[in-house]
């Protein structure tokens, strides 16, 4: 997944007032869930070891938070800690034990 920042029609934050927000909570910027950083929910942290990684990409489809960063050539580049909730599925699935699963500091 590439990490290109998309221009928002309206940036909705926890400061947005009732006069500014969209009617009925309609999402007018598709995919704006990305603006909501869920990384701080994490209590466990996956740590990718690039040297052990065989680029098999088995971790990518199992991540429930689209947090395995893969570039346009289909190369695993690392983990998006802004959104990774630390479920550990990627570490579990990796056949080469390339992802450590450690306690969050």
């Amino acid at each position: 997944m590439s990490k290109v920042k998309v221009e928002r029609k309206k940036v909705i934050t926890s400061e947005t007032t009732w006069k500014e927000t969209t009617p009925g909570g309609i999402i007018i910027d598709p995919g704006n869930a990305e603006d909501f950083l869920t990384g701080d929910w994490r209590s466990m942290r996956p740590v990718w070891n690039q040297e052990k990684c065989k680029q098999c990409l088995l971790c990518f489809p199992v991540c429930p938070d689209s947090s395995i960063i893969v570039d346009e050539d289909g190369k695993m580049l690392g983990i998006d800690y802004d959104h990774c909730k630390g479920c550990g599925v990627c570490a579990e699935v990796c056949p080469f034990k390339s992802i450590d699963y450690v306690e969050e500091e």
């Binding site: 926890s14 007032t17 009732w18 927000t21 009617p23 009925g24 909570g25």
Partner: peptide, 9 residues
């Protein structure tokens, strides 16, 4: 974070 604003609206 947002429900209340939508109800106020």
């Amino acid at each position: 974070n947002h429900y209340f604003e939508h109800k106020r609206q």
